[in-house]
Amino acid sequence: MTASCGGPMGFEVRQLRLVAAIGREGNLSRAASALGVSQPAVSCQLSRLEKQLGYRLFERNDNGVTPTPMGEALLRRVDSVLPLMDDLLTDIEQRTVVNAVPAVLRVGAVCSAIAGRIGGLVAGAVQSGTVSVQIDDCVLRLLDMVGDRRLDLAAIKEYPGYEHPLPPQVRVTAFMADPTAVLLPEGHPLAARDVVELGDLREEEWVLHPVDSSRFHEYLFASCAALGFRPRITHQCASEQASLQVVRNGAISLSQAGSPALAPGIACRLLGRNALSRKHALAWRLDSPLAAAAADLVEELRKVYWHEARDSPLFDHWGTEPSKWELSETR
């Protein structure tokens, strides 16, 4: 069979599934059974596809079929393309069927003390066993994905006075305030204290994550300016491990008190006066089938936060007054 001289053709998803099933089963009859069609139908569809392509994809033999070099090349790509196509089709279906609980619940979460537990909580709240969790520290991206139904809900972090505008139909309830800890080299003079004031860090060299859409850097600089100084950010590291190495060598950094970044050679101390605290919140769409479960989820997430935070070595310095840190702010 020679190559066709016509223009480029477009594959249909059903054709990709056909090729994948034949390649996986190595036999037209078994492929037909896997696809839920007759063996003659599979044979006819394969012949038609090969004619369209101008290449033979499988060699027929007494034991079944064997992919040709062109078939092997196509199979390698089909194996990577089909999961993306399935994800796209599921995404389209979930965004168009507004009033039905989706087959797969898609949950977003930032890195926090509750990130590992939110999938199970959502599954329990709506009696669904299939939950997909996407961990992403970009709050703006998570809110956009909730807004256009690529996510059903998201657990996010916000900073007081620096909250993001919300997409239409999206609501956010903040349920916990989380203190901030400062990370110091073990031998640092401030490591001898249980609580460190933000103003005490005015002469330090800082290592922070690069500026992103979270607005944390705006929050930090405004908080430091109110105390009469500007933090000297000498290192920017996207990697937590790299940041910790810089701290070991003399810089200071910041961490969540509820789930601090602990490592050998580094001291973790609470920042005093609630400096640089953040809010944990849940975002969802008002017209989502999960909206009715949002209030219960908020309560469960609050309980999970306290459960996880009790493992923090800083807990005794701030967690003894729950009402001081529990929030109920909806916008």
Rank of each mutant, 00 (worst) to 15 (best):
A31E: 02
G36C: 05
S253A: 14
D194E: 15
L208G: 00
A267V: 03
A177C: 05
A123V: 07
G129C: 05
H235K: 11
L82H: 04
D178S: 06
M85Q: 09
E326V: 13
P67N: 05
L74M: 14
K279I: 00
G161S: 08
D194R: 14
L35R: 10
H307P: 00
Q15W: 10
L105P: 00
V139N: 05
Y305K: 11
A295K: 15
D200V: 01
H235C: 07
C268S: 15
D148S: 06
A3K: 06
R30Q: 13
H164P: 01
P102N: 08
G7I: 02
P189Q: 06
E158L: 12
Y162H: 12
K303Y: 02
L201A: 03
E203M: 02
P102E: 06
G161I: 08
V122F: 03
P165I: 06
G228M: 13
G119F: 07
C111L: 04
P313S: 07
Y162N: 00
D144S: 12
L16I: 04
L46I: 03
T330K: 10
P165W: 10
S323Y: 00
T90F: 12
Q52W: 04
V126W: 13
L282N: 02
A73K: 14
R285L: 13
W325P: 01
A309S: 12
P322N: 13
S288C: 06
H280Y: 13
T68W: 07
F315Y: 15
E72Q: 13
V78I: 07
L121E: 09
E50L: 08
V246P: 00
R278E: 10
C138R: 15
L208A: 01
G161H: 06
R30E: 12
R24W: 08
P168M: 03
